[in-house]
Lab assay of single mutants.
Amino acid sequence: MTYKLILNGKTLKGETTTEAVDAATAEKVFKQYANDNGVDGEWTYDDATKTFTVTE
């Protein structure tokens, strides 16, 4: 399945996607991606759209 991440960081905004077997796996990938890019904030997940959002 394809999962999407929306980044609403103070210095980085954008979107990315990943292929993962489940939401938990996608979340690990996205949290590492956000961490690597210096984005740390509040996370939400919408199962209907398979979209994670992180907002600083």
Results as ranks from 00 to 15, higher is better:
E15I: 13
E42K: 11
Y45V: 01
M1A: 12
V29Y: 15
T16A: 11
L7A: 04
A26I: 01
G9T: 15
L12K: 13
K28W: 09
L7R: 02
A20T: 05
A23I: 11
T49M: 06
T53R: 07
D22K: 03
E42N: 10
N8W: 11
Y33F: 12
Q32T: 08
N8I: 13
V39R: 02
F30L: 05
D46K: 03
E15Y: 14
Y3D: 01
Y33S: 02
E15S: 14
V39D: 01
T25A: 13
A23R: 12
T11P: 04
T2C: 13
T2E: 11
T55N: 09
L7G: 02
L7S: 03
L5Y: 02
V29G: 04
A26Q: 00
G41F: 03
T49V: 06
T51F: 02
K4P: 01
N37W: 14
K13G: 05
T44D: 10
F30D: 00
T55C: 06
G9N: 04
D46F: 04
T17D: 05
T17C: 09
N8S: 07
E56N: 06
K4D: 02
Y45M: 02
G38K: 07
M1Y: 15
D22M: 03
E19R: 11
G38M: 07
N35M: 15
V54E: 01
E27M: 15
K10F: 11
V54K: 01
V54S: 02
D46N: 11
V21G: 08
E56H: 07
A24Y: 10
K4R: 13
W43E: 00
K28S: 09
V39M: 07
L12Y: 15
T18F: 11
T11A: 12
E19C: 13
T25S: 14
N35L: 14
T49P: 02
T2Q: 10
G38T: 03
T44A: 08
A23T: 07
Y45R: 02
T51C: 06
A24G: 09
G14E: 10
E27G: 06
D36I: 11
A24C: 11
N35P: 02
G14S: 12
I6D: 02
A20Y: 02
A34R: 01
E27N: 05
E42V: 14
N8L: 14
F52S: 00
G9F: 13
Y3R: 01
M1P: 10
G14I: 14
E27P: 00
K31I: 08
T51R: 04
D36A: 13
G14K: 12
I6V: 09
T49K: 06
V21A: 13
Y45F: 08
A34W: 03
T11V: 12
M1Q: 14
L12P: 04
V21I: 13
D22H: 04
D47R: 07
A26H: 00
A23P: 12
Q32H: 08
K13E: 06
G9C: 11
Y3C: 02
V21R: 09
E19L: 13
